[in-house]
Design a protein around this nucleic acid. Sequence first.
DNA 1: CTGTTAGCGCGTTCAG
DNA 2: CTGAACGCGCTAACAG
Lengths: 350, 350
Amino acid sequence: MDGPVTLRDVARLAKVSVSTASRALAGGLTSRETEQRIQRIAAELGYRPNILARGLKTRSSRLIGLVVHNLANASFRVLAEVAQARLRAAGYQLLLCITADDPAQEEEALATLAAQAAEGLIICPTGQNGPRLAALERAGTPVTCVIRRDESAELETILAGDPEGAYAGTRHLLALGHRRIGLIVGRAETTSGRERLSGYRRALEEAGLPFDAGLVHAGRYEPETGLAGCRALLDGGERPTALFVANHESTLGVLRGLAERGLLVPEHLSLLCYEDMPGLAWQRPAISVVDNGPAALAELAVDRLLLRLRGEASASPAREYRIGARLIERQSCRPPASRTPSLRLPAEAR
Amino acid sequence: MDGPVTLRDVARLAKVSVSTASRALAGGLTSRETEQRIQRIAAELGYRPNILARGLKTRSSRLIGLVVHNLANASFRVLAEVAQARLRAAGYQLLLCITADDPAQEEEALATLAAQAAEGLIICPTGQNGPRLAALERAGTPVTCVIRRDESAELETILAGDPEGAYAGTRHLLALGHRRIGLIVGRAETTSGRERLSGYRRALEEAGLPFDAGLVHAGRYEPETGLAGCRALLDGGERPTALFVANHESTLGVLRGLAERGLLVPEHLSLLCYEDMPGLAWQRPAISVVDNGPAALAELAVDRLLLRLRGEASASPAREYRIGARLIERQSCRPPASRTPSLRLPAEAR
DNA sequence: CTGTTAGCGCGTTCAG
DNA sequence: CTGAACGCGCTAACAG
């Protein structure tokens, strides 16, 4: 009736000491008989161990921090949903922190998480708080970075397969016969921006095509970048026959830019996007994408973190993992309208 | 060096007792001189109070639970983002729970939040755990329901202005001259489904138009509902001249359905949606919406919760709040193509 | 204004 | 196998 039921209540009702009750609920430390009896009583009373008290003792809060830039980006959203579900199943709770990619906010989040005694951390780092993250790791709080690498610290990191994803996407367009492929991509300061650009370049190179900086528009992660990219890439002289939108947030802006110009996909222009989101499959024509696999990324991040929380991971130095990207062909890509000869691609280079 | 620095460390270095250190850091309970000295020392040591220990004592965890169905819905997403930012500014952390609108998962979430000693709760309830929520409230944990009402308990609730939002939206279409307005809406089991339907009916009624159940398609919150709704409403005999999509998740399905049928918006059909999301403004033509104001809703929910956490709220019985909806006119609505006479609307009732 | 004492609820020694 | 005692780090009653 009055406040939550404590271990004492259970012990009193079972006529045992508190410590016996504690052991019984832990399991395997008392006689089978009393164990079952106490567990039954605890269940009847609706006993729930006070995690704060337990944590104070065992230095474990059952809290995991998730630090992301926002929830609008589909990858972050999926990351949050998957991590929440998986961690809950493992008996942990998710502490959500949003940084807007701002180092100051990130720092505050880290301080708070430390104060809350978070046991582990999944974070998409800004890159400016490497020392703090390293300190957490040293203090025994496993930190798993996702999506972006923090160059200033050696931390376990799960990255998307961006170099090969962008490579595969570009190659797909090349194989269809496109030779002028516009690229809208994130800034070079970010892991994904750099890596996607490099994949694009490598595919071009292998196909014996020159890299044309005029076909690349890099910008911040926002729809306006897509709109600006359309202007920059489509309103010039020799228009590309395909557009590879490798900056997820730009996608909406690109769709609008194409519509404004009356450009039909895929009749006038092929369109390939990076990072899947619900709208793209429902679009008509459905937009082909390079899926960076945020769910798989989240799964692995949680798996690795749990392993390390249980101390089961080998104490080897921090490793880096990659989640393979996957091309999802839908209806937005086809050979260019003009009779450009389809070019022969060399066999895929490792 | 070894583990986090505790209050004892600070006290030892300052040569005072632990409680003096505690008071000094709380502020105003010691001499100005020692207070500043101790605060300086604490800062130098990088002291961070252990929130678990403090919570064990004060029964406060600085944790607020946010329980939502998912993060894909734009309103939930905004709710999470705004609540996180506001609560953090107030010194609280957000514990994220996702229920998939499943009472069993909701119950587990509530149990866990209780065990974590969450101090307050913002929840979009399934409606099946009213007693549990009421118990929490009685036990001193303020609970604020959002978006949906839990009929089985008297709880503070912040709702969207759905009845008048749907009314205003329908009226907007009526004022343009539409007389056959298709409605795609959520199921009657949900607060929003019921209320939006009622607003639609009231607007029709006031305009002296008969309610035609054949113009209404109710379904689950998913894109497929929109697609099915298109089939049901557009492939029949007398096609509506406007579509009001008041089930947010259906929007993508409707857009696809329209595209599949080659229906141009607004030339062939006017389209009005409920709940804004980034894609709608970037769509071409930009889609008009009834904005239910999730950010304002979140702000109010947080404000109310904080007030009650501080015990500043009057102890009056639970009240219900409404966030006014707002019609955002963009480019997807215009008078019907045919020469239907624009009908005179009566002055707005009440 | 400060130090001492006493718990918060639990896990974990120690004896028995 | 069980009970009693102790302490995690902190705050809130008391005294002084």
